[in-house]
């Protein structure tokens, strides 16, 4: 764009009088004069020389050298191990080594990318149903935690393992052996799940806070009879 056709105003130091004269001299700049805030003014000598802004940017970069380093050294410093972290979904293994899952298939149904595949089976234990095979394709899983939310048995929860990489797609198909995790390692997340999803439940029962869990809602302290559903 040539200087004649560019909508450029005179420098601000020139004042309103010269702006008005520019408007009278060149009618096609009238819009620029009427609304000078949105149009660029002509460059001042300092801006044309480029030295001032250049030194300013250098000074900013240089001053960063004395500020605190914000880099997190990943392989050594992992992410903060919060229970709210969405990681890989895992199955809860009870103290006797059996999965909590009763193979109802709700998570399989709700899973948006259809990453879960369950084959139900029967056992002789008091809880008669169990998954014969429970497979999650970790390359499909989007870690949305819908499965955890829908699970009536608190059998599938999100763990805090979040970096899963591999060289073959077969390595990402996790079966029951790889998915089961002892309940002792998942206590924090289960307590977080109870606390969070109960908040959305308008029909929350006073007997819901469990005795075995880590978290007990202080609002129900002393008012409820603890019931362990498991």
């Amino acid at each position: 764009m040539s200087p004649e056709s560019a909508p450029v105003l005179p420098p601000p130091a020139a004042g309103a009088a010269s702006a008005a004269s520019a408007a009278s001299g060149a009618p096609r700049f009238a819009a620029a004069v009427a609304n000078p805030k949105v149009m660029r003014h002509a460059l001042t000598t300092n801006e044309k020389l480029f030295v001032g802004p250049f030194l300013k940017s250098l000074l900013y970069t240089f001053s960063r050298m004395f500020k605190k380093d914000i880099t997190r050294r990943y392989p050594e410093q992992k992410m903060e191990n919060k229970p709210s972290l969405h990681g890989v979904p895992v199955l809860v293994m009870k103290e006797d080594g059996a999965p909590r899952c009763v193979a109802c298939g709700l998570c399989e149904f709700v899973c948006p990318p259809r990453a879960i595949d369950i084959q139900p089976g029967e056992t002789d234990r008091p809880i008669e149903r169990e998954p014969k095979s429970f497979v999650i394709d970790m390359l499909r899983c989007i870690e949305c935690s819908y499965c955890e939310e829908v699970c009536p048995e608190e059998a599938i929860v999100m763990s805090t393992d979040y970096e899963v990489v591999g060289r073959r797609r077969e390595d990402f198909v996790w079966d029951l052996k790889k998915l089961l995790k002892p309940i002792a390692q998942l206590k924090d997340r289960i307590a977080w799940v109870r606390r969070t999803y109960r908040r959305w439940d308008s029909n929350a029962d006073a007997s819901a806070p469990p005795e075995g869990g880590v978290y007990r809602d202080p609002r129900w302290a002393g008012k409820s009879k603890p019931v362990d559903h498991h």
């Binding site: 990943y74 392989p75 992992k78 992410m79 890989v88 970790m138 390359l139 899983c141 989007i142 870690e143 949305c144 979040y162 970096e163 899963v164 990489v165 591999g166 060289r167 073959r168 797609r169 990402f172």
Partner: peptide, 25 residues
């Protein structure tokens, strides 16, 4: 493909882990 990465989207940590896995390869 040499390295697959899980996550939707993966955290930057996971991509760094993938680069480390590629370095190993």
């Amino acid at each position: 493909v040499d390295v697959y990465t899980m996550g939707c989207p993966p955290r930057p940590d996971t991509l760094i882990r993938a680069v480390m896995e590629l370095q190993k390869k």
